[in-house]
Simulated assay, not measured.
Amino acid sequence: MKHAEMIKLGISIGDLNGIGSEIVLKTFDDTRMLEFCTPIIFASSKIINFLKKQYNLSLNFQGIDHPSKAIDGKINVMNVWKENVKINFGEEDTEVGNYAFKSLEAATMALKNDEIDVLVTAPINKATIQSEKFNFPGHTDYLARELGGESLMFMITDNLKIGLLTDHVALKDIASVITPELIEKKVKIIQQTLKQDFRVSKPKIAVLGINPHSGDNGVIGKEDEEILKPTLQKIRDKGDLVYGPYSADSFFGSKNYKNFDAVVASYHDQGLIPFKTLSFGMGVNYTAGLKKVRTSPDHGTAFEIAGKNEANINSFKEAVFKAIEIYKAREEYKILTENPLKKQGKKI
């Protein structure tokens, strides 16, 4: 297993008109970060020079033409393009969106080819990145197609982890999308990621109801009674510690979430509103279930403050640390599962 300082950490630059480039460069302007990983930013030396001046940073970097040329202890910029890019901070621009995809595509390919160990993605604009090559509601679905595995949006901090049954699905479609098969699949992904990525040997998971008050015994919708409850019982019958459905409106205020290793929300805002309220600026978006490790900050492009030198780097920095931690945990898990006698402290 690699030591933390040897981990090659790829970074997609995100939408250049947003705050992504600012939080990336400011994070690694602190040279102490280079003790934990070898960063490789997928962009271009020209644009990084421009951004360095924009934010009055002193960082030193070296341009490379392949991830294998990255040097430990330095900031490496993988030159994905050579031409100039016109940046207008705070504006939606499909041309800039095209460069966001170029960066993401190159970084993802490097991850697939084991040329980098983990990927941290800066925020994209979901509208301007759309093209024939990228026709997805966000990073998660694109990475699931490219990297393999069953993806799940998993919002994480040290004390709170929330997974979603549905993520970028319109509210009117949620009830029709949630099926017993989907519930079982998502719960299984969360169980596995807690074991292999977060060192939880026997995960205890809470599931939130679909309807207000979990349907009030069918008075407010029948989905909880007819779909969610029997499916959770089926999972429990296998010996898994999965509980619910819990009424979402009181679950977080009562601090009940502290009794579980993870929480499963039925839809995007049901999970992300409490998550961001409790941990905004320190949370991380982790794509669980993939064959590779990808994290991102818990916020978007923040066009309203882009270019103003005001962005908070904490969530991006946490995303870097979490990617490293998860990579190490996963490598340890592989060793233990491939050589179970080591787990018992016996010689092989």
Rank of each mutant, 00 (worst) to 15 (best):
F303A: 09
E332G: 00
G221L: 07
S214W: 02
A329K: 09
L208T: 03
I183W: 01
E226G: 03
F42H: 07
T94A: 13
A170V: 13
Q270T: 08
V200W: 04
I174G: 08
T337H: 10
A175L: 13
M78E: 12
G239E: 07
K291D: 14
P137I: 11
K102I: 04
V24P: 00
F101Q: 04
S44Y: 01
K133I: 12
L104G: 03
F36Y: 15
S315V: 04
P180H: 07
A311T: 05
P137S: 13
I174D: 10
K52Q: 15
E105K: 15
M33P: 08
K238T: 15
F42E: 04
S12N: 03
D249C: 08
H213T: 04
S58D: 14
K308R: 14
F303Q: 11
I183R: 00
E310F: 07
K8C: 02
K2W: 09
I348S: 03
Q270A: 10
H3C: 08
K86D: 15
A122F: 05
E22D: 09
N84H: 14
P274H: 02
L208P: 02
N217M: 11
D158H: 12
N312T: 05
V320A: 01
E35N: 15
N312V: 08
T27P: 01
A311W: 01
E304L: 10
T94N: 15
Q196N: 15
E146H: 12
I11W: 00
V263C: 05
G63T: 14
M109T: 14
E184Q: 14
S201W: 08
P39A: 12
S247G: 09
K112M: 15
N79C: 13
T193L: 08
T128H: 12
E5M: 10
K185D: 03
L278Q: 00
S21P: 06
E318S: 08
L164Y: 00
I273L: 11
T27N: 03
F134T: 11
P180D: 07
I129T: 03
D269R: 05
K186M: 12
L111Q: 04
D29K: 03
T287N: 13
H3M: 09
F136T: 05
Y99C: 07
E150S: 11
N79G: 13
K188T: 11
N125L: 11
N312I: 08
K292V: 05
E304R: 05
M33A: 11
E105V: 07
F101R: 00
Y243W: 14
G73Y: 11
P230K: 12
N76K: 10
G345Q: 02
I205L: 09
L232C: 06
N98E: 15
G345N: 04
R294D: 08
A170I: 13
S58Y: 09
R199D: 15
T108E: 02
N211K: 04
